[in-house]
Amino acid sequence: ARAELRVRVRLPGGQVTEESLQADSGSDCISLELRTADGALVTLTADFRQEVKIFRALILGELERGQSQFQALCFVTRLHRNEIIPSESMAKLRQKNPRTVRQAEEVRGLEHLSMDVAVNFSKGAQLSSHIHNVCAEAKEAIYTREEDVKFWLEKGVDGSMFEVLPQTSDLPDLQRCKLCADRWKPCICSYSLSIEWYPCMLKYCKSRDAGGKVSSYKCGIRSCQKGYTFDYYVPQKQLCLWDEET
């Protein structure tokens, strides 16, 4: 059964955006979607069964600089236990007042990830069936990291879907895109996103029955905010025009 909740969330610049949270306890996955202040659409899909997280960003292109209407990126990482509440708990979430503007109770540290492996779109369904839908616009831009690949290989995932990308150690003159003057040269691009509000933990309360026996029960959620920065190889700087010195 799919359940959807829409919450109003305050962005760092003070603007209010609507975030959609969907839970499907049947396929044991959840997804969150929000539009950021610069117009990008960010989606996080958590596939609990496969222990996979998929971040997708649809970034508005700069048409006057020869870019397409939007650019899609997919970053796939390992989903750890207790990062986010289970899908069946998410499916039961309700809010008393849908007009309330929410701000996360806890800010979790920024995670900086080096995405050094490309994922083959047509084979990606073996890693998570959601890659096929979520990353359809980002077929040529699905990234993960070597340490997560090792974990999935141990679980029996087919290794032929992964391709290690060029690193600074292979190409000594490979620079960060923001330092690279030539638009057509390869470089290391950096993209940052933030999940402004998500249910990261269940809260438990204690109750005492007539005989004095104490029991605990779920009585709500704790909300978190978390930022991510992904570094990854691009064959030309033109694919990374947001990452410039301003």
Rank of each mutant, 00 (worst) to 15 (best):
T77I: 12
R78N: 04
H80A: 13
E83R: 02
E83G: 03
E83L: 05
I84C: 06
I84F: 11
P86V: 03
S87V: 03
S89D: 13
S89V: 09
S89M: 10
M90P: 00
K92M: 11
K92C: 04
K92I: 00
K92V: 01
L93D: 01
L93Y: 06
R94N: 04
Q95D: 02
K96N: 06
P98K: 06
P98A: 10
R99P: 00
R99S: 12
V101S: 05
Q103H: 07
Q103W: 03
Q103G: 08
E106A: 05
V107R: 11
R108L: 15
R108Y: 05
R108V: 05
G109C: 05
E111M: 08
H112A: 08
L113Y: 01
S114R: 04
A118F: 03
N120D: 15
K123A: 15
K123N: 06
A125K: 14
A125E: 12
A125I: 06
A125G: 14
S129W: 04
H130F: 15
I131R: 04
H132L: 11
H132I: 08
H132K: 15
C135G: 09
C135D: 07
A136E: 13
E137S: 12
E137M: 08
E137A: 14
A138M: 07
K139R: 15
K139P: 00
E140Q: 13
A141M: 09
Y143V: 01
R145H: 03
R145Q: 08
E147F: 00
K150C: 01
F151I: 07
W152N: 02
W152I: 04
E154V: 07
K155I: 01
V157Y: 10
S160P: 01
M161S: 00
E163W: 02
V164M: 12
L165H: 00
Q167M: 12
Q167H: 11
Q167D: 04
T168Q: 14
S169D: 14
D170N: 13
L171I: 15
P172N: 09
D173N: 14
L174M: 09
L174I: 07
C177G: 01
K178E: 14
L179I: 02
L179V: 03
A181P: 13
A181H: 09
D182Q: 10
W184F: 08
K185E: 11
K185L: 10
P186Y: 01
P186K: 00
S190T: 13
S190M: 10
Y191D: 04
S192F: 02
S192V: 02
S192L: 02
S194W: 02
S194P: 00
W197P: 03
Y198D: 05
Y198H: 11
M201Y: 11
L202E: 14
L202A: 05
K203C: 08
Y204P: 00
C205I: 03
S207T: 14
S207V: 11
R208Y: 07
R208I: 15
A210Q: 11
G211E: 14
G211S: 15
G212L: 05
G212M: 08
K213E: 13
V214E: 15
S215F: 14
S215R: 15
S216V: 13
Y217G: 02
K218H: 06
G220N: 09
G220D: 09
R222H: 06
R222F: 06
R222Q: 13
